[in-house]
Amino acid sequence: MTTKELNVTLDAEGFMTDPKQWTPEIAEVMAAEEGIAPLGERRWLVINWVRAEAAKTGEFPSLRGISKNSGVETKELYELFPKGPAKKIARCAGYGKPKGCI
């Protein structure tokens, strides 16, 4: 399955435009497209934390926020989501492209 076949709206860069449409299956499809499937326990820890945090604050957390508070530190984040962790985490978690500088 590809992200185009999912029944969700995506922007031109493949980010979901409505996080409420997200399901765990979508995360796995996004991960496959990003070359990091299957997600596994550590990546799920990050995705679940990010979704809970974003639901609480109304904003997608910064990468620094994720590394400080999710239980997965910077080095491991870059190993789990290589070549652009901010973007990969946002896609798998069903959020738009992160705009923060940090």
Binding site: R64, G65, S67, T74, K75, Y78, C101, I102
Partner: peptide
């Protein structure tokens, strides 16, 4: 306030980031 770390911690962060 912007959640940007002090310089020492920032160096560690960018280094951990590769």
């Amino acid at each position: 306030k912007l959640d940007v770390p002090p310089v020492g911690e920032f160096l560690q962060m960018v280094h951990d980031a590769g």
